[in-house]
Design a binder for these strands. Structure first.
Lengths: 339, 339
DNA sequence: CTGAAAGCGCTTACAG
DNA sequence: CTGAAAGCGCTTACAG
């Protein structure tokens, strides 16, 4: 099948190609009658403008990029990214923007991808995930002047736009809830060290632990996998003066932690309370279902997409604060059983 | 920053733009010395060919498309797609192909996306997931002559290329394993009705049940969510003459089923054996870990990508049979406890 | 309000 | 082996 072009429309409408372009893009320069006639013809023959030609004429590529830096098995098991992508997509497709996805091995590869995308003019802007405390991607994107929205923060985003949530506040709320239930020994399995939100949460955990005067508030880093979550849990539960509550930095580790408790013959929530960050549908699959800190991730993605499209249009944008995660108590938390 | 073009390279090398193009693309028409000089300059100034200009010159778009038809929460929780995408990506990025992702609401929207992509020349080919028994997407792609690889089968793919696995054989292996353990009442929670692999598995289940002379072999459809998996499990376990083993069409439902068994006070595997299809890392998060039918999904995606790239190059390709899923016995299956 | 033309940055026959 | 030129399908100043 031959693809229709504006030349075909121009011929059928008896006008110039320029007129077709003006009519289809809502530009002044054609009479309303002509515009309607041209639009009707375009619809009739199923015209879609060649994206390459459009991009080459100085317009935008009508595509944005997302580079994901995780190995396959972790990427698959974390619901976060797919939910984020869904939300991003909803916003993009309403504006006929395409999402270009690339899985990368590390930050260097990711930076190379940005440089290539920029050189190829393949995307008009990018989303930046997994913000680090001292992130090398930020200065590169600033230098390239490639519109970008950082998904994370606050701060450490240089002059780039961002969408962030107050994780510290959410963690404090969780600590106070556990404290109110009577927990005095609380442990935490954190995320990947070096990620900004890992540091923010860790700091908030330590501060809250001191402020509440907990007997114990240990935190260990991890890599978000179930194995690491299980290992950390085993270590915590084997220690003398074991914690009565554990907070996990993602849902996958929390589920693994629950299994370890069951395996060690500890009752949840009787002997151990469990809280998961990221409240995906996974948290309601277990017995007992997991108390979790959650928020609307697709909406988060949609906000990021809206920010990025605005940045591409050259609008001045800064940091957008998304809703704070809220705690949904389920069966995995309760007052600690008196010893 | 100004993007370098072949004109910049040509000027610095003292040759024509055409010569630069030939040199960079490995075409004959330039001396080896000139070629090396040009390549060196391109590297030095960090040249990347403008993808739009390239696509417009009749070459390919260097991008392929993947449309996913699932709501956000299901998409997020199913590790399958992200693992598939990882594998697809690995193959594509080695060839500097981009992956364009689009989330769609239904088949009609998906078909509209294909028509738009084709008209825009945005992609050189597409992957088709969730093949249905009588799939309306197949004739549309044939009509558009848009290279496509169906991820699924066998059969029902028209003239399109495909990558498939023998699910019937995998299911039979599972049934025989359960039979050998002593199970005579086996139930199955299937996937979305209408999907080809749902039908193939259902048929294989029924056939194997009859051949083995099982007392009971019931199968119900579902939608892959944990809620549906839990509901079906509750119904099975509440019935008189309840099954001693249940096979689930994905890992998410199997985990939900395990939680229901625990909630109802049934021991797994003592009172109930559980088998999950799709052996993602989720299956090893539970206590007991789940016996699962798995195969290398990233590799499956990589094979699909290889097929699609071959199709785009105009090579004749047909149906590629991937490895059959194999059973990994874990703690969730055992001989049924004598009543 | 409309047409003719230049230009985006490549690729690729076509002459020399 | 190399250069000059046409063309891909749009957008957008520039004349009429």
């Amino acid at each position: 099948m031959k693809r229709p072009t504006i030349a075909d429309i121009a011929r059928r409408a008896g006008v110039s190609k320029g007129a077709v372009s003006y009519a289809l893009n809502g530009q002044p320069g054609v009479s309303e009658a002509t515009r309607q006639r041209i639009i009707a013809i375009a619809q009739e023959i199923g015209f879609n403008p060649n994206s390459a030609a459009r991009a080459l004429s100085g317009a935008t590529a009508n595509a944005v990029g997302l580079a994901l830096c995780r190995p396959a098995r972790i990427l698959g098991i974390e619901p976060f990214f797919m939910e984020l992508i869904s939300g991003v997509e909803a916003e993009l497709s309403a504006r006929s923007y395409a999402l270009t996805l690339q899985v990368v091995a590390d930050q260097e590869a990711e930076i190379a991808v940005y440089r290539r995308w920029w050189g190829e003019r393949r995307v008009d802007g990018v989303f930046v995930c997994d913000l680090r405390v001292d992130d090398r991607r930020v200065p590169v994107l600033e230098e390239l002047q490639l519109p970008a929205v950082v998904i994370g923060g606050p701060g450490h985003t240089g002059s780039l736009a961002s969408v962030w949530a107050d994780d510290a506040a959410a963690l404090v709320e969780t600590m106070e809830y556990l404290f109110a239930l009577g927990h005095r020994r609380i442990a935490r399995v954190g995320g990947l060290p070096g990620l900004l939100h890992t540091e923010i949460r860790r700091q908030a955990f330590v501060d809250a632990g001191q402020r509440l005067g907990l007997e114990q508030s240990v935190t260990v880093p991890s890599d978000y996998t179930g194995e690491e979550g299980a290992r950390a849990t085993r270590r915590f539960l084997s220690s003398s003066g074991r914690p009565t509550a554990i907070i996990y930095d993602n849902d996958v580790m929390a589920i693994a932690g629950l299994a370890v408790a069951q395996e060690m013959g500890l009752a949840v929530p009787g002997d151990l309370s469990i809280v998961a960050w990221d409240d995906s549908a996974l948290c309601q699959l277990t017995h007992p279902p997991l108390t979790a800190l959650g928020r609307d991730i697709p909406a988060y993605g949609a906000h990021a997409a809206r920010q990025l499209l605005a940045a591409i249009e050259g609008k001045p944008i800064g940091a957008y604060q998304d809703e704070t995660a809220h705690l949904t108590p389920r069966g995995s938390t309760a007052a600690p059983r008196p010893v």
